[in-house]
Design a protein around this nucleic acid. Structure first.
Lengths: 217, 217
DNA sequence: CACCCCCTGTGACCTTCATCACTGCCCCTT
DNA sequence: AAGGGGCAGTGATGAAGGTCACAGGGGGTG
């Protein structure tokens, strides 16, 4: 595929999925330096502790963002969807810091990867890029606060239901394919607790359970 | 006090406490529109659900930032110290949204209040303002993630110690003046649990307890 | 001084959830 | 068809921490 074709592809994707990126010259800059990248469902995009080299503009699919502490405890934070980007990338790259989070493709996912060195310049030059970045930060902060609410104030049954709803939304399907153990990791809970709570939800008619499968009703 | 004197006061404060705000014209802009504001220890600066009208540059003292959910559950998030600002303000104001947090003066506190309408323009015009804002966001995100770590992965005794350390730092004193009930609110715990854990810490020689007073050893 | 309010200490009990141990079953492989 | 590995269900037990009840003490106020 020739360079011009690739540029045109990126240009079209940006125009279609990021209408808020308004300046034509910015769109063209993105088409110049952005690369279309594909990740398979389950593929790790960036691990905790690694250095950030690109900022992803998500085009298709969804990305799961998790936190892991030194002891190996894991906790799901939020999903990134098409039209969104990873705020953690911005200053991670601006300051050349290690990532504090882990990102994994939830479905087969397509992103436009932008080398981090352009971020700063575009912030000053393009108002719509500045707004985009600021809005991203704000949305992520809000999402983190919602996560805190959930952990601090809610009990496991409610957290589990919230989690299932979000996962269903991220996968565009009321059927969730996951083992109880995987869910337990994401909620930082025990597998047995998740099993029991799911059973309870099934009795209440909220879900239907199968092997590797949860149906939201 | 004449206008010129006030401007000069703000100018001096900015230069002294915010060396990273480098552009002389930006310093002067801040001096033009910024107002020195004082808050007494314990005074509420902004409540949950109110609209944000100013962005505060903290000069002296410290500000406690908390979250409260619909049910009235409360949770301490972090302290803002001199040289810092409230990231939540930026887009709250840019989008005219209600505040998601509550801020209370921890000590007697002085800030420079900047009307929110200047934020956006300065972001584009002054690189050091843009960097300042981005760094603030990044620091706050990190602080929120640390808070999540704490709630999700740690037990109450460790959270309590962390809390006491932060409170001591915010007050520049190893002696903390607070009731067990107040601490319990901040940790979203019960007063009895806090009392028992403090007693335990006293037995271990970590603290010394008095009425309305905790001495960190 | 006497009173009273607020703060602290402590026991008893309960809920939530982690942990351990084991069973059974689905489904894949050989 | 037989075996086996991964997944789900379930009981027993215990730790952390919430809730309730109440006792005691310090310090300010009338």
């Amino acid at each position: 595929m020739a360079i011009q074709d690739l540029n045109q592809e990126v240009l079209n994707l940006v125009r279609k999925h990021y209408p808020q990126i308004a300046e034509r010259t910015l769109q063209e800059d993105i088409a110049q330096v952005g690369k279309v990248m594909h990740f398979r469902a389950g593929e790790m995009i960036m691990d905790f502790g690694s250095y950030v080299k690109i900022v992803p503009l998500i085009i298709k699919g969804s990305i799961k963002v998790s936190r892991e502490d030194e002891g190996g405890n894991e906790l799901f934070l939020y999903y990134l969807q098409p039209g969104e980007t990873c705020s953690m990338s911005f200053t991670c790259c601006m300051m050349n810091k290690k990532s504090e989070i882990r990102t994994v493709a939830e479905e087969d996912t397509t992103v436009i990867g932008i080398p981090t060195r352009y971020m700063d310049e575009w912030m000053s030059r393009y108002p719509s890029w500045k707004n985009f970045v600021m809005l991203s930060y704000d949305n992520r902060m809000l999402e983190l606060i919602r996560t805190i609410d959930s952990i601090a104030f809610k009990k496991m049954d409610e957290r589990l239901l919230d989690y299932l709803e979000k996962k269903a939304e991220a996968n565009n399907s009321r059927t969730i394919n996951a083992t109880h153990q995987e869910i337990a990791y994401d909620l930082n809970a025990s597998r047995e607790a998740v099993s029991r709570l799911l059973k309870q939800l099934e009795k209440e008619g909220e879900v239907e359970l199968g092997r590797n499968r949860i149906e939201l009703l």
